[in-house]
Simulated assay, not measured.
Amino acid sequence: MFFIRILISLIVLISNGDKVFGQQNTIVKESNISIVKPAKKEILEQSKREQLRNKKVVSLFVVLIVILFFLFYLVYQNNKLKQKIKRKDTKQKILLDVINAGIDSQETEQKKIAAFLHDNINSLLSSAGLHLNVFTTKNNIQSEEIQKTKAILSEVHDLLRDISHDLVPTLLVRFGLIYALEDLCERNSNSSIHFEFTSSVAADTRYSEKFETKLYFIVSELFNNIIKHSEAQKAQISIHENNNQLIIIIHDNGIGFDAEKLNEIEGFGLNRIRVRIKKLKGSFSIISRADENTGTSIKIKVPIL
């Protein structure tokens, strides 16, 4: 009986030990699960952080590629624009050289023709008229035909003199630019328009022949524009020197025009004038308004040669 009790006690003790051991295993498993769960969570969060960082790196790389492509495109377009400007400047330079060569050739031919008319044709006409006068005086001939011939010779002489003067003015050759421009104002003044001349430069001042010739024809062409297009009643030209530069200002009280559209105003020949002044290394500016009755002001500034 005692032995049975001892056996029962051992069985109960063993069963209780199994329970304790099972509880301990359960506690261990639960502790392991509680340890594993935070580790997995941390790994997941770390993985997400790495994925986010990778995405940022890829995005930054894409942005850098786009920026580099954009910079390359800008450099390419800039080089292309520079080449286009260079080609345009080259074409413009060639065009200016052609125009200037044409102007120089024209002025040279004008001088030759003027000299030929003045020194040869006019001299021959004067000699013919003189011989005719001597013949009629010696022979006391009164003939209507001879009188008409004298009148025709005189008229032709005057016409050729005017043509010669228009080609290369005698005053310009003999006395210089200031005298010639003052004479130009007097010859263009009439009942419709009056040209006023003022100058702080001495009348006997002389410049190089080429310089005087070019400026004279520039001013002459501007005067023609005023007469033909401005409908002005009064115009004035003023001349003065400053810092080794000759400054010419021309103003009229006409209707004016849109100075910003010079390329469209081919009839005025202003672009041709601009080319001439540019060859002299000078500047050319126009102040004019089509909708205002303030007239037109033109300023020419060229270094004295």
Rank of each mutant, 00 (worst) to 15 (best):
E50T: 08
E45R: 15
L81W: 10
I298T: 07
Q147W: 05
I4R: 11
S200T: 09
L153N: 06
E155T: 14
K80N: 07
N16I: 06
L305E: 12
S297W: 00
H251Y: 13
E212I: 04
P303G: 00
N224L: 10
Q24A: 13
K138N: 14
N32G: 10
A180P: 00
K29W: 10
I67L: 11
D119S: 13
F197D: 07
H229K: 03
K84A: 08
A39L: 15
S47P: 02
T26H: 12
V156Y: 14
S47K: 15
G102E: 12
F21C: 03
F70T: 04
R161C: 06
S123P: 04
I14Y: 10
F268G: 05
E221M: 09
N54D: 15
F284I: 02
G102H: 08
N225V: 08
I287W: 07
Y73D: 02
A203Q: 13
I226W: 01
A235V: 04
K82Y: 09
H229W: 09
S164H: 05
L130F: 15
R289C: 10
H240R: 01
I146G: 01
N78H: 10
D258C: 03
F21G: 03
L68Y: 02
P303D: 06
Q147D: 15
P169W: 05
Q46C: 05
S208E: 15
G295D: 00
N133V: 02
Y216I: 02
K210F: 02
V201R: 07
L96F: 14
L222N: 06
A290S: 14
E241L: 10
L215I: 07
I65L: 15
Q106Y: 12
K210L: 07
I265H: 14
E155I: 08
L125I: 11
V62Y: 01
F197S: 10
L262R: 11
N79Y: 06
T205K: 05
A128I: 10
K148L: 14
T205D: 00
S126G: 11
I6M: 12
I226P: 07
E182Y: 01
L270K: 06
I33M: 08
I146S: 00
S220V: 01
K150W: 01
I33G: 00
I163W: 03
T170V: 07
V63M: 05
K301G: 03
D166F: 08
